[in-house]
């Protein structure tokens, strides 16, 4: 088996995640789909690292994880405050520029 299969898997996971972002209305699930896309990218980076024989790809994946953590913290805080004001976690409910 060639490691390129990992790349196919990453592409598939990324596409599934992106589609999930588009079709789900629950903000938390949307967030999870974003995480899925990030993880698919990480897999691709790690695979590239292996294929190139250096660790730069792993470093990028590491940074991606850190940034994803930061993003999740802020994003979940936003979801919580949104839920407080609207009593709903649906992204479609926030379609107007007012409460």
């Amino acid at each position: 088996m060639n490691p390129v299969n990992y790349l196919y898997l990453a592409a598939l996971l990324f596409t599934i995640g992106a589609t999930g972002v588009l079709v789900r209305r629950n903000a938390i699930v949307v967030f999870m789909c974003v995480e899925l896309m990030l993880n698919a990218c990480n897999l691709a980076f790690v695979t590239f690292s292996r294929m190139h024989g250096n660790l730069d790809g792993q470093i990028i994946a590491f940074f991606t994880m850190v940034v994803a953590a930061a993003e999740v913290v802020v994003g979940l805080a936003i979801i919580v405050s949104l839920f407080r004001t609207r009593h709903s976690a649906s992204v479609d409910d926030a379609s107007l520029m007012k409460l």
Binding site: N2, V4, A11, L12, A18, T19, L22, G53, L55
Partner: peptide
């Protein structure tokens, strides 16, 4: 969009001739 994007990505990977790899 999802299917189109996925097909394009897969086609792109398949198009790049990645036959050999170095290993870590």
């Amino acid at each position: 969009c999802g299917i189109g994007f996925g097909v394009l990505l897969l086609a792109g990977i398949g198009n790049a001739s990645l036959k050999e790899f170095n290993g870590t």
